[in-house]
Design a protein around this nucleic acid. Structure first.
Ligand SMILES: [Mn+2]
Ligand SMILES: [Mn+2]
Ligand SMILES: [Mn+2]
Ligand SMILES: [Mn+2]
Lengths: 149, 149
DNA sequence: GTACAAATTTAGCTTCTACTAACTTTTAGT
DNA sequence: ACTAAAAGTTAGTAGAAGCTAAATTTGTAC
């Protein structure tokens, strides 16, 4: 009987392994919006001095109402602060997340460029890919950049 | 006055460009679940002869109720068919999406492997990355695979 | 300093994706 | 054939992320 048993056990193990991978992707999607927002808030503060709802709204391509809603969630989660009708600031936690996200985003973008992808595509694709790249893969990207740079 | 005007116009253009990129990422997220499901249904039919709710549930790491729910949506959208209490089949449209998704998924996974990423990480990361890779980037991945293969 | 425009917020709605608990149907073992 | 387990379904709930429309506050131009 060993045969069917073993392949059945093997299938079960494989199923669990794949389930874990999908779980990680779902987790990434949960933090994704937060990462894009704090990164954008940091960019805006550096470029223009402040981050306003209307600026985020224009750059993200969503309505101001949606931005307001999300900012409240991020505030609840301790990533940003803001007084009613005033602009948005990052907490220490938010700054840390922004910095990590930006570094990773740039690595992915630069890697695609080094691979020969055109600038527009590298910009666009890295916006999605960045959230699904683990540390080992990021390290492989950096290694490739060092070699080709 | 040209100066402030031009940088203001430049900022607006840039904002629109970035908004378009974020819109594409959001679009990708909308088709992502459908892609993973049909790919998995195709795999199961090939490996075991049929795709059942319980199989999808185990491999995706979500409850049977969630799978059932999603399968009904995919049915509504013309990607799968299934009679109550029976297993799941792909429509022609579903098979096409599964084939495209699988090809792209494998390209991403093989590319990561060729880059020197370990097998577990390549498997895991490709599950998320696959949905955010455009055709030009995919072509760059294929080119790298040909050179390193 | 008032009036108007811009920005922000609130309220109410929708879809997707997830869950648990309870129920029904099918399958399998004896 | 009956019964118990497995599989599938339904009902009800929740949060995230989006929208529009209306209300409010802030900022600016005169
Ligand atoms: Mn980013
Ligand atoms: Mn992003
Ligand atoms: Mn896939
Ligand atoms: Mn996937």
């Amino acid at each position: 009987m060993g045969d069917e048993m073993d392949t059945a056990r093997g299938r079960a193990r494989d199923a669990q392994r794949r389930a874990e991978q999908f779980r990680r992707v779902r987790d990434a999607h949960q933090t994704e919006v937060a990462e894009d927002y704090v990164e954008l808030v940091a960019d805006l503060i550096e470029e223009t001095g402040e981050a306003r709802v209307v600026d985020l709204s224009e750059r993200l391509g969503v309505t101001k109402a949606t931005v307001n809603n999300t900012i409240q969630r991020l505030q609840r989660d301790g990533l940003v602060t803001s007084q009613p009708y005033r602009s948005i600031f990052l907490t220490e936690k938010g700054r840390t997340l922004a910095e990590t996200s930006r570094e990773r985003h740039h690595t992915v973008r630069d890697f695609l460029l080094a691979l020969g992808v055109d600038a527009d595509t590298a910009e666009a694709d890295s916006e999605g890919i960045e959230h699904h790249v683990s540390e080992p893969t990021l390290e492989a990207f950096r290694k490739f950049l060092r070699k080709s740079g």
